[in-house]
Structure formats: C-alpha cells, structure tokens
C-alpha cells in the first residue's frame, strides 16, 4: 500500500522545513510573543493585586477615620458634659453665695433694726421721763402757785398722813 508507506523524499523535506520552522518561530515569534503576553499578564496581576491592596488600605483608612471621628465625638461629648457640669456648679455656687450673702445682709439689717429699735425705745423712755418730769414740774408748779393752794396741799398731805 503506497498510502501507508512514508516516502523518504517527503520525510526529508518535512524534516528540513519543520526544523527551520521550529527554529525561526521559537526565536523570532514565540519568544517575543510569549514574553509580551507574560509581561502583560504579570502587569495585570500586579495591577489587580495593587487594586486589592489599595482597597484594603482604603478600608483601613476609613476605619481609622471612623475611629477618629468617634473619638472626637466622644471627646466633644465629654467636654460638653464637663462644661455643663461646670456651669451648673457655678450657677449653684453663685446661687448659694448669693443666698448666704443675702442672709448675712438680712441678719445685719435685722441686727441694725433691733439695735436702732432698742436705741429708739431707750430714747423714747428718756424723753417720756423728761416729759413726765416736765409735766410733773408744771403740775407741781401749778399746785404750788398760790399760798392757798400750798395750804390745801399741805392739808391734804397732812390728812393722808393722819389717816395712815
């Protein structure tokens, strides 16, 4: 069978052509093509990795930012609370101070009033005594203005004494 008998002529030419083809392609085609494809694949892999990394970094940053915001918020809240407390305390203190002061003023006023009152009373007493003496003097003077009156008085007095 001719069809299944390899013809050496064709084997020879196939050999030459295939070996040259293999050499030429390996050197001038496969090498640059594969290196370009590999480089590009490496580039894509790198880019993807970088993107993944950046994403993770972004996430970390975001988390960090959130933490910072949380911290700031907490700090602000604490400060607000502090301020509020301080204000309340100051108001309280002021109120208390004012109360004490007012009481003090009231007490001293009362004291003053009392002492003034006492002074006034004592003066009034004195005045009244003076007026009483004056009145008594005037009365006595009137009683003793004439001899008759003096006699009457003396008699009256003597009568009183006698009666006793």
């Amino acid at each position: 069978m001719d069809i299944v008998t390899p013809a050496y002529g064709l084997v020879f030419w196939t050999g030459i052509v295939f070996v040259i083809l293999l050499f030429l392609l390996a050197k001038f085609a496969w090498k640059p093509i594969l290196s370009a494809v590999n480089t590009r694949e490496a580039k894509i892999t790198d880019a993807l990795e970088m993107a993944e990394k950046t994403k993770a970094e972004m996430k970390a940053l975001q988390a960090q930012n959130e933490d910072l915001i949380k911290e700031a918020r907490a700090e602000r809240d604490a400060m607000m609370k502090d301020a509020k407390e301080t204000t309340t305390r100051m108001i309280e203190e002021a109120k208390n101070g004012a109360k004490v002061e007012a009481e003090k003023v009231l007490a001293s006023a009362r004291e003053t009033i009392n002492s003034e009152k006492a002074a006034a009373i004592s003066e009034l007493k004195t005045q009244v005594a003076i007026f009483s003496i004056e009145i008594a003097e005037k009365v006595v003077r009137g009683e003793l203005a004439s001899d008759e009156k003096q006699k009457v008085l003396a008699e009256k007095l003597a009568e009183d004494i006698n009666m006793n």
Partner: peptide, 16 residues
C-alpha cells in the same frame, strides 16, 4: 512565518 512574524512584530512595536 508570515502570520506569526506579523504577530511578533505587533508586540515588538507596541510592547505588552
């Protein structure tokens, strides 16, 4: 050769 060299030329010219 024609096909593969022109492909190789493309990558040589344009890089990856």
């Amino acid at each position: 050769i024609l096909i593969m060299f022109s492909v190789a030329k493309f990558y040589k010219k344009n890089g990856a």
